[in-house]
């Protein structure tokens, strides 16, 4: 058996140490034949078996940095859209999947999952809740979610049921999906909005699995065994 490579893309969006360590911990604990590579090089994307796109800060800065990395967008599209490598976006890395982001301007996203990223403040009554949405909140299956038996991550989400499972969130913007079928998990903060989006081999989480203690490590393990 060969060792698989999980690539965490480093495009200058902040600290990747926590994410890398969380994946390494899961690999060690579960005895997976995998290694974690942190890189900003397009050729590493081409070689990767799984791809993780983290992200911190503003949507515009993140997508600009990603585009500024030579060959990166093309390599990602080839690996994820054509060769269907399992992909996980985290926080702003999830938001970049959208068609566009409306944080400080109007920025084009990857457009892998149709939708737009808008201010949380526009979705909750003024003055009622603190922004950022910061802390632990339950992720649950939306009532009208589409079932995908192949998706091991989703099977975990379903096992949490309507009660949900707690994950750590910190964000001021949210992903508005155009197609409700792409909402795989939801969270309630003033109103229900997407916490997990995805389709086929692509998944994005608004929360931070690398900071969500055992629940987060479990989700990372699910992603590592996911074979879409």
């Amino acid at each position: 058996m060969t060792t698989h490579t999980t690539l965490i893309i480093d495009y200058g969006s902040g600290n990747l140490r926590s994410a890398a360590r969380a994946f390494e911990r899961v690999i060690a604990d579960e005895g997976l034949r995998a290694e974690v590579v942190v890189s900003n090089r397009a050729e590493d994307v081409a070689k990767a078996d799984r791809i993780v796109l983290p992200g911190q800060g503003a949507f515009g800065d993140c997508i600009d940095n990603l585009r500024a990395t030579p060959g990166m967008i093309e390599a990602l599209e080839e690996a994820v859209l054509e060769r269907a490598r399992p992909f996980l976006g985290i926080c702003v890395g999830m938001q970049l999947l959208a068609t566009r982001g409306l944080e400080h301007g109007n920025h084009e996203g990857l457009d892998w999952i149709p939708g737009q990223v808008t201010a949380l403040a526009d979705h909750i009554p003024a003055g009622t809740l603190k922004i950022p949405h910061m802390g632990w909140n339950e992720v649950f299956v939306p009532p009208d979610a589409v079932k995908d038996e192949q998706n091991i991550v989703l099977r975990s989400v379903e096992s949490w049921g309507t009660q949900g499972e707690h994950f750590y969130f910190v964000h001021s913007f949210m992903f508005e999906c155009k197609d409700k079928r792409h909402i795989l998990g939801a969270v309630d903060y003033g109103s229900a909005f997407p916490a997990i989006v995805g389709r086929d081999n692509i998944m994005g989480v608004q929360f931070h699995p690398e900071k969500s203690q055992s629940a987060g490590l479990k989700l990372i393990g699910d992603f590592m065994r996911w074979d879409p």
Binding site: R17, S18, R21, A22, R25, Y168, V170, H208, E210, K211, S212, Q213, G216, L217
Partner: peptide, 8 residues
Amino acid sequence: VADEVFMP
């Protein structure tokens, strides 16, 4: 600490 516990 960040190597051992996965929390904020």
